[in-house]
Amino acid sequence: MSKRDYYEVLGLERSASERDIKKAYKRLAMKYHPDRTKGDKDFEEKFREIKEAYEVLTNAELKARYDQYGHAGVDPQMGGGGGGHQDFSDIFGDVFGDIFGGGGRRQSRAQRGSDLRYNLELSLEEAVKGKNVEIKVPTWVSCETCDGSGAKPGSKPQVCSTCHGQGQVQMRQGFFAVQQTCPTCHGQGKIISDPCSSCGGQGRVQKNKTLSVKIPAGVDTGDRIRLAGEGEAGAHGAPAGDLYVQVHVKEHAIFERDGSNLYCEVPIGFATAALGGEIHVPTLDGKVKLKIPSETQTGRMFRMRGKGVRSVRGGIEGDLICKVVVETPVNLTDSQKELLRQLDSEMEEGSAKHRPKETGFFDGVKRFFDDLRS
């Protein structure tokens, strides 16, 4: 079943501020929280939907992805990295404390590393046939010295004595219990008293990473390839983000691609257009013969089936569509000019037969002006 728009779920416009989002969530969560609805499955599902929308729209990174790509940008199964797996007390406790008796305390989780994007330019031939490429990506990687823990080898992080590993502390203000990030461990739940000298306690270091990427045949501009876990390493041993290789196909000197089809313009001589003949046209696999019938006009299209591209998403190969352009002779000698004058003079006697389009056009122009005068 398709998901509803997150802004619609919270009853908000897409321009809503973070404060508006939190106010809307608080109002709806008070109404639909399971501790109030006592087992009503419809209300429970409603609260899950509200909670999921709140999780995404209050996370700056996830909100940006959702605003650009919709649910596909935050769906974990599609590489979005969105949430949706917290229990009710996790997020509810953040906003309301233990007003319903659920406590709402949760242990802080180290933040997943950021996703990265790499822009890759390919020639048309490379995109159509596919290839293996090596790319260098400046990123954060897990520190090898401390194995990502941030602590000096031989030691280990200690549980924070202030929050006891929760990453948060509660402060009661009358009826409400307000949760705040622990000021001692800054939400990590652990204290590194003896930090690793290589990473300074972060558990990660900056490095240029070389990766081999297999580009499948048939990719096109706008396609992207996801490399799971090849993004930035998370701090203090948290999972790495993903790397997205964004494909851009450079303009080709001969062909223009549209989906699975290729298009090209083929110039032909005046005599070939009039009398017909055979010409050689280029394809991505080499030259092939194309038969030009007599009396071919400029702009005529010829389809060569199966000489296009097979899409990366499968299906049959597209076609090559050639548009012929009759080339007017240039740099003529005096004798060649005289021959053309003789030819033109002979055809003038039967211009309607030899040049029907020209004759029809000027006949139409004459009728137009006659109608204006009448």
Rank of each mutant, 00 (worst) to 15 (best):
E317N: 15
H354G: 00
H236L: 12
E61I: 15
D370N: 15
A271I: 11
V309I: 15
G350M: 12
V330R: 01
A235W: 01
V249P: 15
R367D: 14
L211K: 10
K3L: 11
L62H: 07
G315L: 13
G93D: 13
F369I: 09
A53N: 08
G259D: 08
T283F: 05
I191L: 11
H354S: 13
Y244L: 14
D223A: 05
S161K: 06
R172Q: 08
D363R: 10
V324S: 00
Q179H: 09
D370L: 06
R257P: 08
T328W: 00
G286A: 12
G315K: 13
Q180H: 14
S2R: 12
E121W: 12
G218V: 08
P267A: 12
G82Q: 07
G308I: 10
A24D: 04
F92E: 14
K207N: 03
G83Y: 07
E134D: 06
H186P: 05
D90P: 09
D147L: 04
E338P: 00
T328I: 07
P282I: 15
S2F: 13
E45P: 00
G11L: 03
D319N: 15
G218W: 11
Q68W: 03
F175Y: 06
R65P: 01
F255E: 11
S311R: 13
G201R: 04
S198M: 12
G79M: 00
E126W: 03
P153E: 06
